[in-house]
Simulated scan of single mutants.
Amino acid sequence: KDVFIIDDSLFDRSRSKKTELLAKVFDHCSMKYRNGYRMLTLGWSDGNSFVPINHCLMSAADDKNLLCKAADFDGRSLAGKRRKQSRRKATEVMIDLLKAARSSGISAKYVLFDSWFSSPKTITALKTDCELDTIAMVKKSSKIKYGYQDGKYNIKEIYKQCKKRRGRSKYLLSVDVTVGDEAIPAKIVCVRNKSRKKDWLAIISTDTMISEEEIIRIYGKRWDIEVFFKTCKSYLHLVKECRSLSYDALTAHVSIVFVRYMMLAVTQRCNTDDKTICELFYRLMDELDDITFNQSMRIIIDALMDTVMEHFHITEQQLEDFTTSLVQRLPKYMQKALEYGSAAA
């Protein structure tokens, strides 16, 4: 299933002092504030290939964390709109990026993100405004509550109330809840935390028709964007290559790095996926499958007949009756394969 993936990463500019829209950004890895931007990224993945679609270098929404002001531009121009967007909330910009991607013809079934973006307001906006289902990690907050049975409870309260599955089950708990004031139906699946044996994690899905195992499998695709961030920073010179002080130049540089990654993703797909040879792949694979299946059936039947004649010493008429009875008991697609094999022979 094709998915959109949303996440942000630190665009570090610790040594800069006069870069446009430079801000103090909280780094979740070091748990400290650093100078730079939050690189909000929208990507697309089918589980095999990840492609970055759009991005925004997020500055500080609060003036207290803003270190350098933006240059003056007409608010109606692209440069002016880009600078206004950088100071909005990341959840609002996420909706804009998704709408722009869908208007460009890019489609996906689900939107994946971690607990930093997982709020009822965001999930509701994706379902109502973008008509997209969400599969996301649930934030263990006492302030975020979901509709469960006849009341509203946070995820910890729901986990305590429900009975857990025992043994080696892939998940501990699965409950149906509602999200937000619109009461959007959703399913929460709790799984074990591999890093901490006594801890647990919760994943929410607004598509209640899919199974718990499928929810866990689809959410696993979110890791593709983490690999993408690591590759861009370590090998594609995302942070250290461009030292410009212009916000437009930095945005253009990020776009160039993303194009480099797209080229690598396409090359890797062509080298590993035989379907990239298009119609020739399907023609070759279909022909090989038919020939292999028919020949296999004929070999099995011929070996069976030879074994019966050798051990039971039956007549030709008895062997023919036995063969006819055996073929009639086989499924129709096997009977057709045997008929096709006889005609080819």
Rank of each mutant, 00 (worst) to 15 (best):
Phe4Ser: 14
Asp7Lys: 02
Arg13Pro: 07
Ser16Val: 12
Ser16Phe: 07
Lys17Ser: 07
Lys17Thr: 11
Leu21Gly: 08
Leu22Trp: 10
Phe26Arg: 13
Tyr33Asp: 08
Arg38Ser: 06
Leu40His: 06
Leu42Met: 06
Trp44Lys: 10
Gly47Ile: 05
Pro52Gln: 03
Pro52Tyr: 00
Asn54Ser: 10
Cys56Ala: 08
Asp62Ser: 12
Asp62Ile: 08
Lys64Val: 02
Asp74Tyr: 08
Gly75Lys: 10
Gly75Met: 07
Lys81Arg: 13
Gln85Leu: 09
Arg87Thr: 13
Lys89Val: 00
Glu92Gln: 11
Met94Gln: 09
Arg102Ser: 08
Ala108Asp: 05
Tyr110Thr: 00
Leu112His: 06
Phe113Pro: 06
Asp114Cys: 06
Pro120Phe: 00
Thr122Gln: 11
Lys127Ser: 02
Asp129His: 08
Asp133Pro: 03
Ala136Cys: 10
Met137His: 06
Met137Pro: 03
Met137Ser: 11
Ser142His: 08
Lys143Ser: 15
Ile144Thr: 15
Ile144Asn: 13
Tyr153Asp: 05
Tyr153Gln: 07
Asn154Glu: 04
Cys162Lys: 10
Gly167Gln: 04
Ser169Asn: 09
Leu173Glu: 04
Val175Ser: 12
Val177Gln: 05
Gly180Cys: 07
Asp181Lys: 14
Ile184His: 02
Val191Tyr: 11
Arg192Thr: 06
Ser195Glu: 06
Lys197Asn: 08
Lys198Ser: 15
Leu201His: 02
Asp207Trp: 01
Glu213Ile: 11
Ile216Asp: 15
Ile218Lys: 01
Ile225Tyr: 02
Ser234Glu: 10
Lys240Asn: 13
Glu241Ser: 07
Arg243Ser: 04
Asp248Ile: 04
Leu250Glu: 14
Val254Gly: 13
Val257Asp: 03
Phe258Arg: 07
Phe258Thr: 10
Arg260Gln: 03
Tyr261Leu: 15
Leu280Trp: 12
Tyr282Glu: 14
Met285Ser: 15
Glu287Gly: 09
Asp289Lys: 04
Ile291Lys: 11
Asn294Pro: 04
Ile300Trp: 15
Ile300Arg: 14
Asp302Cys: 00
Asp302Phe: 01
Ala303Glu: 01
Met305Cys: 00
Val308Asp: 03
Met309Val: 11
Phe312Gly: 00
His313Ser: 11
His313Thr: 06
Asp321Arg: 08
Asp321Trp: 00
Thr323His: 12
Ser325Met: 01
Pro331Trp: 06
Met334Arg: 15
Met334Gln: 15
Lys336Tyr: 11
Glu339Lys: 15
Tyr340Cys: 09
Gly341Val: 00
Ala345Phe: 04
